[in-house]
Design a protein around this nucleic acid. Structure first.
Lengths: 200, 200
DNA sequence: GTCTATAGACGGATAGAC
DNA sequence: GTCTATCCGTCTATAGAC
């Protein structure tokens, strides 16, 4: 789904980026259906018709705005570079860092929001998770590796939802380190497979 | 937020229930914004104007449809009746049972979907969780009890999202017992506080 | 490449007949 | 209590001037 080298990219790069930035904010804040092209155009200080001229449709704009500048393979490699022990804490930290990063916060919120209420967005996220994320870590685990990896991932998604979207207290205001210290071991349980009976 | 004994409930009970049932299906399947009153009316085989006559507005209909027939205090008491040990597994089982129940599936899906993209729904769910759910279990835990309880809850929400909304494999097709056996200990880690090192 | 104007469709809500 | 008709606002998307 990447534009490789097309004959010509429509629009001047600066205007295009301004629109994408505004779109990330709008989609992240309001979700796909409530975000409007008029609002995005106003935020980017361009004409609404120009937005569609660049991206063709609202869906096209959404896809372009939600493409994350992250390589999941590289992401997984960094988590697992130092071995499986401590991977839970490192994963919790790296994942939450994505949501804390101001430049990415709108995007990841938008992706989660869209996946909840938009079937095509859900399909994209599902394919991404099944193909890239889970596959990247499953090799390190044993028997029911993929299931364990997804359970760990589901915990992270739920965590992000509760903290950044629902903003339930005290979770929303808790220091990052405290959360990482608590969530890390829970994730580690899925990775090491020791959580079921014996202490680690 | 419960209707106690009002002077008169509008509409005949049967028609009212038909509308609520259709609304639960529609909101659960399409989310708040995409679900339409016209569609709900058609599903319930009534006139669109009748829906608004009963519930006043789309928001009113949503609130009425999403009121769960569940008492969180009672729910928590059942989980914790036999003590803190094994509570993780019991909680995982009870929570997933909610989502597996055909009569409730539409409702809980709708609640989660709406909470993601609708601030008022998010506020309701946030108040519900902070006031009822977390409070019900925090008493059983120690120092950072509320935070731990919310982290456990966030895992469950993420699990439901991944399995029932995103339907990511293999999680979506995994047997319930297998999931409960894996998730239970992760939740237990939050309850028993053993994950960090020190006992409570 | 940028903007104006508007088409075309949809959905929530209301008024009032029966 | 139930339904018909419709108002009014909003949105995406397009056509075409400059």
């Amino acid at each position: 789904m990447q534009h490789k080298t097309l004959g010509r990219r429509p629009g001047s790069p600066a205007t295009r980026e301004a629109i994408l930035g505004a779109a990330r904010k709008a989609f992240g804040a309001a979700g796909f259906e409530r975000a409007t092209i008029r609002e995005i155009a106003q935020r980017a200080k361009v004409d609404p018709a120009l937005v569609l001229h660049y991206f063709g449709s609202k869906d096209g704009l959404f896809s372009a705005a939600m493409a994350l500048p992250i390589d999941p393979q590289q992401f997984a490699a960094r988590i697992l570079a130092d071995g499986i022990e401590g991977a839970g804490v490192r994963l919790a930290h790296a994942f939450l860092a994505l949501w804390e990063e101001p430049r990415l916060a709108g995007q990841v919120r938008g992706i989660l929001r869209a996946a909840v209420s938009h079937e095509s967005a859900a399909a994209s996220l599902r394919a991404f998770i099944e193909g890239q994320v889970v596959g990247s870590v499953a090799g390190y685990l044993g028997e029911d590796a993929r299931l364990r990896a997804e359970l760990a991932g589901s915990h992270l998604v739920g965590l992000a939802f509760a903290r950044y979207i629902l903003r339930a207290e005290p979770l929303a205001s808790a220091p990052l380190d405290e959360i990482v210290a608590l969530v890390g071991p829970a994730l580690q349980g899925y990775f090491s497979g020791a959580a079921q009976g014996g202490p680690q």
